[in-house]
Write a protein that binds this DNA or RNA. Sequence first.
DNA 1: CGTACTTTTGAATCGCATCAAATCTGGTGG
DNA 2: CCACCAGATTTGATGCGATTCAAAAGTACG
Lengths: 210, 210
Amino acid sequence: MNPKIAQAQDWQALLAGQPELRLLTTDELDAARITELPREAQLFHRGETPRKIHCLLSGEIHLVRYSRRGAAMVLARSRDGFIAEASLDAPRYHCDALVVVDAVVLSLPLAAYRGALDRNTDFRRARFAAQAREIRRLRAQGERLALPTAEERLTHYIETEGSDGSIELDRPLKALAVELNLTHEALYRTLARMAQAGRIERTAKVLRLR
Amino acid sequence: MNPKIAQAQDWQALLAGQPELRLLTTDELDAARITELPREAQLFHRGETPRKIHCLLSGEIHLVRYSRRGAAMVLARSRDGFIAEASLDAPRYHCDALVVVDAVVLSLPLAAYRGALDRNTDFRRARFAAQAREIRRLRAQGERLALPTAEERLTHYIETEGSDGSIELDRPLKALAVELNLTHEALYRTLARMAQAGRIERTAKVLRLR
DNA sequence: CGTACTTTTGAATCGCATCAAATCTGGTGG
DNA sequence: CCACCAGATTTGATGCGATTCAAAAGTACG
């Protein structure tokens, strides 16, 4: 492990949680830096030119864009792994990266990242596969947003994002409503109706389709 | 150029239209085959295991999934280039590939494609960048589908997919309506209202924001 | 000149957003 | 331990925009 990073005893466990980083050589990790970012901080801003690639070790960061009327739109939620990797070959970021839960971020200069892609087969395959997964996830999300009713969107969400017909509720339902592009009222009502009709089972922390 | 492919005189022009294929070596192209597919044919079916990667040379192919009620959902429209590249590392296709306009397809065994990714730096960079573009496009599409009204979705579409505040209408408005996840009636009415109010300019083949 | 498809308009209906307000919950400080 | 507070959850009433169903007019193409 890179000595500069190894100094940070507290972060060892976090680094261990990112298997892809272990694919990088000591040389490649040499230029990496670790930063702590408090809630509300911004990792980067729209319009800036990407100079580093960031890997989220802990916390939560959202990619956000604002409509002309000021409404925030969440393009992506990240709880770990590389952030805005798809923007790196664009001349500018097209969204803000907003820290939603206090975060620890490892940042790597673009040159090191690109070098690793070219020379490190395992790393390259891992990143390539990760991009493919993201594309499939985004397609599923688009498919979901195209569904006309709240119930269909919720069902689709549980089927595609959950496992075995159920999802864990590790955050408030309001957050889920945002992801389904519903108001929280609409989601609450839909849940009530579905539970009433026996189409869904609801416990404190789990939603299960029946 | 690969002699087996070169035999197909008619397809030379089509191959020239795919700059990425020229990045492949003769060896890599050796295993490629070209197929013609009529409208309504399927290039692959949901549930099949991917064994080849397909590059669309001409025509149009849609990736389609069907809801339980049988409603078709178009996950992606392709008019040229690699198809369902993101599904290759999945054990099965999760959608059907439906030929919408008579198509010519070049198919390459997965092993040849993966070998090219590993050994051919230019090809790999090109594919990596293409995936990143696709991710950005899908994010923009998700953002668009989350907009509440027909007018906002249309405006967003013209702003992000068009150039300089206008788009060319090279296909019927009904097709555009599907992409905006609207009924064609809703789109027609929205266009009429916006034109009436002077917020959009409409000619036979172009839509322009004002 | 007929046929298939697109474009257009109308009327009725449905589902979600919006606004409002009450209740519940977890966590904090006194 | 309890009072309190912020945020989450829940229910109600109203309105709007898109869907749906229907039908007519326009357009391309063989």
